[in-house]
Structures are given as C-alpha cells and as structure tokens.
Write a protein that binds this DNA or RNA. Structure first.
Length: 425
RNA sequence: GUGAGUGUGGCGCAAUUGGUUAGCGCACCAGAUUGUGAUUCUGGGGGUCGUGGGUUCAAGUCCCAUCACUCACCCCA
C-alpha cells in the first residue's frame, strides 16, 4: 500500500457512491427552489478572526477544532468550520441589508474541523444549510424549521425527533444566568467540565451529559420561564405556526447550542440511529451576529445539516435508492484499424445525438469488449466487423434479450432513440 | 485531547500450542467458444502478512514503539 493516503478524517468519494451524492444534492436543490432559496457560495477559507468573533472564543470549535494556518502573506487563515459566519460576513460586506428583505440563502459544501474521526464525524464533512437574513418574524423561524424537515421527508427519513427551545436574548438572558448561577453555587458534584462552564458560559451546563450533572440540572430554574415578553411571544407564535404545518416537536429546556451566537429559537434534529453522532441537523436564530461582526444590526436564522449523517441515517433506514447509471450503447469492433475507425466515428454520432455511449479504449479482443459492455450495464451494443464495414451495415444487439438487428449505417441513431422511447412507456 | 479494539493479494476472510514453498472465495486476465457479454469448466497473474525495532534455532503468530482504520468519551453536522 502506498504511504500516500487521504488525510485522516477525510474520504474519497468514488462511484457509485459519488452518484448517490450527486442525486442527493440534486434533490436538495429542487427543494430549495420550491421554497425560493437562492444559492450562496462563500470561500472555503476565511480570516481566522471571522470565526473567533462569529462562533465565539469559548466554544470548542474555536478553542480546539479549527484548521488554522498562516498563508505566505502572514495572514491567519482558517478553513471554515461552519457556514453561518461566512454568509453573514458576505451579507455585510456586500451591503445586502440594503436589498429587499428577507434574503433567503442556501449552501452546500465542505466544512473542516480538527477532531478525532468516528462514525458520522469527519475532519472534512459536508453540510447543506440555509440562512434567512433581515427578518425577525417567528414565521421565518417556522419556515426554516419546516424546510429542514421537508428535506428529511423528501428523503423518506422517518426515525427522528425535533427538539425545540428558546434561549432568549442578550437582554433577558442575564437575569436567567444569574438564577442559574445562584442555583448551581451551592451544588457539589458538578463534573470537571461544568466547573469551568459554570464560570465561563453557565448555560452550557444545561446540556451536560454526565449523569451527576443531569441530576443536578434536572431541578434547575428553566430558561423558558425567564424569557422577556417579546421572546416568550416569539416562541409561542413559532409553535403555533409549526402546529399549522402538523409539525410535532419536543420542548427541550436544556437544549443550548454549542455556538455562542444563538438568540431565541434553537433546535436540533436527532435520529434514532445506532451511532452516537445522531444529530443530523441543528440551528437557530442569531440576531446579534451581524452586529458582532461589525455590520448593522440584522436578525438572522438558519440551520446546518450534515450530509454524511443524512447518508448514514438513510443507509440505516434502507431508504437509499442507488441511482442506476446504465449506458445506452457500447460500440464493439471486430477487426483491424479500419473497423476501429468506423466504430470511433459511430461513437461520435451517438454522443452527438445525446445517446450515452462508450467503446473499449484499450482495443481488446471482441470478447473483452463485450465483457466491458456488460460491466458498463450497456443496454445495447453496436457491433461492427469487416462484413458490416463492407456492406455499410451495423449490428445492434439488445443486451437483455440477446436479439440482434442489422441496420443501415445511418439508421442507428434513430433506431436507438425509438427503442428508448418505447422503453419509457 | 482521553480510552478500547483492529491492521494478511483490489475486496471479504483463513493459517492448530510460534515450525519450514502464507491458503480460500469474489474480482481481474486468458483459453474452452479463431466475429459476441452476465452461466459453466480449465488455467494464470497478483501478498517483503501496516511500518520499524526486539525476543527466539525459528515470528503472520509473542513483546515494544509508531502509523492508520474502527468504535466510544468530549463536542458538533
């Protein structure tokens, strides 16, 4: 084995798997079109400062998971660990807040995090996501969530749960944080991590997985009870809108997301699949982010959906349809240079007529060419030998039935087209 | 960053308590079928057993290190 391999935590995408990915992306684009979301493509790397300021410097992503390096100009560059910060940066940079609001974007692309790989977790993974900027209406929150669920529905994924919470605003959250700190201050037995969180980012103690912390947190005051009237109202309306779409959800007062920019709505979708990385997508509202990045105050909300995890969940539910990529025609030549040249010419004509076609480029013996036709799942082979060449004829073989037809040279394109049409009906 | 497991031809596996030319299936190539595939039969190519060191008369098999993969913790998509 060569010592040169794909870097740890990355993966080559080979056929036929790559075809499945292409079809997944195609389906996503269709859904986005129906919901009137437009694609945004931002750079895969950004100034490191963007993520430190955007994602938050006490988050795990920034503290230990970023791919950061200096470029030759001495700039600190980071491969994007998530999608939102870049989109908001772009929104500010191009002064899109001046356009008709809200703006509805989607993206599909790779993200990078330096972590130990495991099932459903890679150093380069792929996300699709949406961001809606320039609006604070709970109707937007409802659309974002319903669009996410629409994706799962389209892929016929059924085994999941929506967790929903509101984490309030920088205006009403401090009051709650106070209460939480007071509550926790006389509790002992918090895990090591939570001791730190307690000081730096108390909310994060809420979703700690350690059993003892869970036990302590269970009776903690609830954030949802401390929301200001506006946040409370926003949260209620969102739930009403979700109900109209028949979306069922689970209120999860301990759901706080690991990124600092969230305000009000926060949500996660967890699949019930076996692996431990079962959070397939998550997101929330980030009304303070644009301002934090130096732009005007502009509300926004979005989600990120992990494509590798979607893929895993689909595999577990067995609802992955492998798109067949059969070839219409494979050209087989039996003879010398002249026959090969003729086959080469026929191949061109077929392709010009948008018929998918190939031939054996290794100039193998006829038997080898037929084998190659079989491997390529060719529906038909066009066989040309010395006899056909002399008579200006071709032999068309149906690879399923074994039937063969003798055709005039110039009949072939029309004949294949008719056969194709016949099959579709 | 922490812990556990695994590492043999392209893929999936095997090799008795360390014992002599490391096997099998699939795949690949060729022939049977000198103008034709997916079946069948026959034959063939391909492995310094992840890498480096050590123990031993002898190591795929034991020990150490290292790398990679897998799974889990942490966290996230």
């Amino acid at each position: 084995m060569s010592e040169l391999r794909a870097p740890r935590g990355t993966k080559d995408l080979l056929p036929p798997e790559s075809q499945i990915w292409a079809s997944i992306e195609g389906m996503l684009r269709e859904i986005y079109k129906i919901y009137n979301y437009k694609e945004i493509r931002t750079p895969i790397f950004e100034d490191t400062a963007l993520f430190i300021r955007g994602v938050g410097d006490t988050t795990d992503i920034v503290e230990k998971e970023m791919y950061t390096f200096n470029d030759k100009g001495g700039r600190s560059i980071t491969l994007r660990p998530e999608g939102t910060a870049s989109v908001v940066r772009s929104y500010i940079e191009h002064k899109l807040y001046g356009a008709s609001q809200p703006l509805k974007f989607f993206y599909i692309g790779p993200m990078f995090r330096y972590e130990r790989p495991q099932a459903g977790r890679y150093r380069q993974h792929h996300q699709t996501g949406i961001e809606v900027l320039g609006g604070d209406s709970p109707l937007i929150d409802a659309e974002v969530i319903s669009l996410g669920l629409e994706i799962l529905k389209n892929f016929k994924l059924t085994n999941w749960r929506l967790h929903l919470n509101s984490v309030g605003f920088p205006e009403c959250r401090p009051a709650y944080t106070e209460k939480l700190i007071t509550y926790l201050s006389d509790k002992s037995g918090l895990c090591e991590d939570c001791q730190k969180r307690y000081r730096r980012n108390p909310l994060r103690t809420l979703d700690c997985k350690s059993a003892t912390c869970k036990e302590i947190i269970k009776d903690a005051p609830l954030l949802t009870n401390s929301l200001c009237i506006e946040c409370h109202d926003h949260f209620q309306k969102l739930q009403e809108y979700l109900k109209i779409y028949g979306i069922s959800y689970e209120l999860d007062p301990f759901l706080v997301r690991g990124l600092d920019y969230y305000t009000r709505t926060a949500f996660e979708i967890k699949t019930k699949s076996s692996g431990s990385q079962n959070q397939i997508f998550g997101g929330g509202r980030y009304n303070g982010l644009a301002e934090q990045l130096g732009g005007p105050k502009s509300p926004g909300i979005g989600f990120g959906l992990g494509l590798e995890r979607l893929f895993l969940a689909l595999q577990e539910e067995n609802s992955l349809e492998i798109p067949l990529a059969p070839l219409d025609v494979f050209v087989v030549t039996i003879g010398g240079d002249e026959v090969v040249a003729k086959g080469w010419e026929i191949l061109y004509k077929l392709r010009e007529a948008n018929i998918s076609a190939d031939m054996d480029l290794l100039l193998r013996a006829p038997k080898g060419q037929m084998k190659a036709a079989g491997r390529n799942q060719a529906k038909y082979t066009v066989i040309i030998g010395e006899d056909e060449l002399r008579a200006n004829k071709l032999l068309l073989r149906d690879m399923d039935s074994g039937e063969e037809y003798t055709l005039d040279n110039n009949e072939i394109v029309k004949f294949v087209e008719e056969l194709e049409r016949g099959q579709e009906q």
